[in-house]
């Protein structure tokens, strides 16, 4: 049931947003398309999704090139805050924006839990086709 999956993903986002340091969250597909998000109006979810995919794709390649093994996450550290792009199973990425002075221990723990849930929700979901009758 696609609607159930989406509702469950919304739930994952809601849980993360309960942490005061978390500013915005988006779940995107690894090929750069937004799945569900709770981003401020000023942010374009499509652009964020594409950029997160490019960041992760590039980071993964770098990790492989440098012989550092499997990719876990990219952290973009800026003066105004941090952006975490974390692998969430085969299909998805979790994008989390946090305050600059965030308690990263708590954030990373919650992100880790969230990506496991997302992976469970989406990886079982093989192509769900509803063939129209002909």
């Amino acid at each position: 049931m696609p609607e159930d999956v989406r509702a469950a993903l919304q739930g994952v986002i809601a849980d993360l947003k309960r942490i005061p340091d978390v500013l915005a969250v988006s779940i995107v597909r690894r090929d750069g398309l937004p799945i569900v998000h709770s981003l401020p109006k000023a942010m374009n979810p499509k652009k964020i999704a594409a950029m997160a995919a490019a960041i992760v794709g590039t980071s993964e390649m770098a990790a492989v090139e440098m012989g550092q093994g499997d990719f876990i996450q990219s952290i973009v550290d800026s003066h105004g805050g941090k952006l975490l792009a974390t692998g969430a199973g085969e299909e998805a990425l979790l994008v989390t924006m946090v305050k600059e002075d965030a308690n990263m221990g708590l954030v990373l723990l919650s992100v880790d839990r969230a990506v496991q849930t997302i992976a469970q929700l989406l990886d079982g979901d093989e192509l769900l086709q509803t063939e129209a009758q002909t």
Binding site: I35, L122, L127, L128, Q129, T130
Partner: peptide, 29 residues
């Protein structure tokens, strides 16, 4: 019966939706 219903029509517009990786795609023909 479906065949008969199609024959009664001039055009058939079919709709289909699929989901992959959490994203729903709608198509029609």
């Amino acid at each position: 019966d479906l065949q008969e219903i199609r024959q009664m029509s001039d055009f058939v517009v079919e709709f289909q939706s699929s989901m992959r990786g959490g994203i729903v795609r709608n198509t029609m023909r």
